[in-house]
């Protein structure tokens, strides 16, 4: 028996919005420690790694480890049926063919359940090696989404350069060029509005706008986003998910041919 109950059910709705355009299907791996999902996009350019810790759920029971293959478009359709304030429970038997989503209104007067067929997916899991990043930028998630959207008008790539002075986002194309520079915040009252930079060495890499814009679908999950960069390593874009976990996106850079 597997059962995971989350009073803040809207988190699940936001997670699906954050992955459904990038991934068509994925395996949800459930165990004692919680729920994880790892999947590459179809073109194998990026990797999504989601982690939801069991202690972050209001109720969590997992008698046996199980892997549930799901079509994320179908799962998203079902989660759209949940209200923003609904309590969401995910339930499955051991060795399941189906998974059940139960939505309860806050006052307990409405309860709906949706059963979805599972898929047998034979997906590769990748080893994500530990690394010390050369640059780690923390900034407001909404600001990052805005910059990616704005610069996407100029070309299909964004260059992210990070130095002691700050972080610079650049794009160029047929209509011209664009640069957005952010300095490290000197004095912030609200932590979530701060821009902070931890730098070992300056870096500058080129990334595809298309994927960055997919990643920013996670913006509603978190006030801040963390961008981590190193030579010979993919960009990591991380959004914390309340006190339950995080979603990380890894993106391979564009390199000189």
């Amino acid at each position: 028996m597997f059962e995971a109950r989350l009073a803040k059910g809207a988190i699940f709705k936001k997670i699906l919005e954050a992955v459904k355009d990038l991934l068509t299907e994925a395996s949800w791996d459930c165990g004692d420690m919680g729920i994880t999902l790892q999947a590459m996009d179809n073109a194998h350019v990026s990797l999504v790694s989601l982690n939801l810790r069991s202690d972050g759920f209001d109720k969590y029971r997992c008698d046996r480890n199980l892997t549930m293959g799901m079509n994320l478009g179908s799962m998203s359709k079902i989660l759209k049926c949940a209200g923003n304030d609904d309590i969401v429970t995910i339930r499955a038997q051991d060795n399941p063919d189906t998974v059940t989503f139960v939505f309860e209104s806050e006052n307990g007067e409405k309860q709906s359940d949706y059963e979805m067929k599972l898929m047998s997916l034979d997906l590769e899991h990748l080893q994500i090696p530990e690394t010390e990043y050369a640059c780690v930028v923390k900034m407001p998630a909404g600001e990052f989404a805005r910059i990616c959207r704005d610069l996407s008008q100029f070309g299909d790539s964004i260059v992210i350069s990070c130095s002691k002075q700050g972080v610079k986002f650049s794009a160029s194309g047929d209509i011209g060029s664009a640069n957005v520079k952010l300095a490290q915040s000197s004095n912030v009252d609200k932590e979530e509005e701060a821009v902070t930079i931890e730098m070992q060495e300056p870096v500058s890499f080129t990334y595809a706008c298309r994927y960055l814009n997919f990643f920013t679908k996670a913006t509603p999950l978190s006030a801040q986003v963390k961008l981590s960069m190193s030579p010979e390593y993919p960009l990591m874009v991380e959004y914390a998910i309340d006190d339950i976990g995080q979603i990380r996106y890894f993106l391979a850079p564009k390199i000189e041919d």
Binding site: V45, L47, H125, L126, Y233, A252, K254, I255, D257
Partner: peptide
């Protein structure tokens, strides 16, 4: 000229 790298050139299969 730049080209898009694949994620598997950085992360290997488990």
């Amino acid at each position: 000229k730049v080209k898009q790298a694949g994620i598997m050139s950085f992360f290997k299969k488990k």
